[in-house]
Computed example of a mutant assay.
Amino acid sequence: MKIGLVLEESGPYQAAYITQWGTATKAAADYINKERGGFGGRQVEVVECDSESTTAGALTCANKMAAAKVDFVTGYSLNFGPNGVPVLEKAGIPVQMFPIATQDYTAANSFPLAGGSAASYPARALYSINKGEKVAVFTAVDSVPAQLALKQLEPIYQQAGGSVLNALIPASSADVAPTIAKIMQAKPEVVINSLSGVKGAALYAGLFAQGLDPSKVFGSGTLVDVDNFYAKVQPQAALEGSIYELECASPDDVTNPDVAVYRKAMKDYTSIEGRSQNALLGFSVVMTNFKLAESMGFANFTKESMAKAYSTQTVPVFAGASYSRAAAPKDYPAIGNPYVKYVRYAGGKIENVQEGWTNSATGKTEDKP
Rank of each mutant, 00 (worst) to 15 (best):
G38T: 09
A15W: 07
N33S: 09
Q43F: 01
A28W: 05
A24Y: 03
E45A: 04
R36G: 06
T25P: 03
S51K: 08
R42F: 01
Q43P: 00
V47G: 04
T23H: 04
T23P: 02
A24V: 06
E48D: 07
E48Q: 11
E45P: 02
D30Q: 15
K26S: 04
Q14R: 15
V47H: 03
I18R: 11
A24C: 15
G40K: 04
T23K: 15
Q20M: 13
W21H: 13
F39Y: 12
N33F: 09
A24N: 10
T25F: 06
K26N: 04
A24E: 05
T19D: 15
K34D: 14
T23S: 08
T25R: 06
E45D: 10
D50L: 10
A28D: 09
W21Y: 15
F39L: 11
S51G: 14
W21G: 04
D30F: 07
G40M: 06
G22F: 07
D30I: 03
V46L: 01
A28H: 09
A27T: 08
V47N: 03
V47D: 05
T23I: 15
Q43Y: 00
R42G: 02
V44W: 06
V47C: 04
T25C: 14
G40L: 08
F39S: 06
G37V: 12
G40C: 07
V44E: 02
E45R: 01
T19V: 08
G40E: 05
A29Q: 02
G38E: 08
E35M: 11
E35H: 12
K34I: 02
E45V: 10
G37E: 08
Q43S: 14
A24F: 04
W21F: 15
W21E: 12
A28G: 07
D30Y: 07
A16D: 14
W21S: 02
N33T: 06
K34G: 07
